[in-house]
């Protein structure tokens, strides 16, 4: 059998907080260009897994491989330059800076001009351009000069996404991008994400609770439960999977998925 190539691999990833095992020996592989969803109940360890992959946390055990390279020892800021970008479940932005500045800084980070303390930042207009494009993609162009702290929650989620887009990462780790957004705002944002993936061929890992969205738009799904991987496969496979249905989908998402499904049709 031909060896498949994966853009990102986690091998035996483990994270302990004291006696709590948040991520228990997780193996995960993501192919380039796919939209890979991670689902699981709250506290399953999805965010912690993302933190291990992005470098926000050091794993207790296991390794992270990106494009065939072991990056376990790479610090957080280096991984961005390698091509891993992420957004946060709990909004994580620069509150006192404006929308434009939030995004511009993400664009600037990727260029080689960040250490030039002798020039005015206006000199580097290319970053502003990148930022403006990213902001336009999420639809915040009319709020460029607004400090991030005073944005409504939904706009802050969009800003979070724009920061990520400006980083121009190959692999996007999206941790519940629609968390806390009003229901009617969710479909447009998901549409944006899908459009980005289709347009640029970026790989996307996505944590999402909306089963409709997950089932219709992802290429592969990993189900997590109590820190471990319960199942992995295409949406169809997951939907058919007995264990998942019994242990998880039926129990926890049954009514929930129904409600969301009803609302969005």
């Amino acid at each position: 059998m031909v060896e498949e190539t994966f853009i990102l691999e986690g091998k035996g990833l483990r994270k302990e907080f004291g006696s709590l095992v948040a991520v228990a020996d997780v193996d995960i592989r993501v192919r380039a260009g796919e939209l890979h969803a991670i689902i699981g109940p709250n506290g399953a360890g999805k965010t912690t897994l993302f933190n291990l992959l992005s470098g926000n946390l050091r794993p207790t055990g296991g390794t992270v491989w990106f494009k065939g390279r072991d990056i376990t020892a790479e610090p957080l800021h280096r991984r961005v330059h390698l091509g891993i970008g992420r957004s946060f479940q709990i909004t994580n932005i620069f509150p006192s800076l404006t929308v434009l500045e939030n995004v511009r800084l993400a664009a600037q980070a990727l260029g080689g001009d960040s250490f030039k303390f002798w020039w005015h930042f206006r000199r580097f207009a290319q970053y502003t351009e990148t930022a403006l494009t990213a902001i336009a993609q999420v639809g915040l162009s009319d709020k460029l000069a607004v400090p991030a702290a005073v944005l409504p929650h939904g706009d802050q989620r969009k800003l979070e996404l724009a920061i990520l887009l400006a980083s121009d990462a190959e692999l996007l780790l999206l941790d519940e991008p629609t968390a806390g957004m009003a229901t009617e705002q969710v479909p447009p944002l998901m549409e944006t994400i899908r459009a980005i993936q289709r347009g640029t061929g970026k790989t996307i890992m996505l944590v999402e609770h909306n089963m409709n969205v997950v089932m219709t738009s992802s290429d592969r799904i990993t189900v997590m439960h109590l820190g471990a991987v319960l199942a992995e496969g295409t949406p169809a496979e997951i939907a058919r999977n007995e264990t998942v249905q019994q242990a998880y989908l039926g129990e926890l998402y049954g009514d929930f998925a129904g409600i969301i499904g009803g609302a969005s049709t």
Binding site: S96, L105, D113, K116, H120, F121
Partner: peptide, 14 residues
């Protein structure tokens, strides 16, 4: 107001 200064503001924030 240089790129570095902007980064410092970001660091102060978060």
């Amino acid at each position: 107001s240089s790129p570095v200064g902007r980064v410092m503001l970001a660091i102060r924030d978060n």
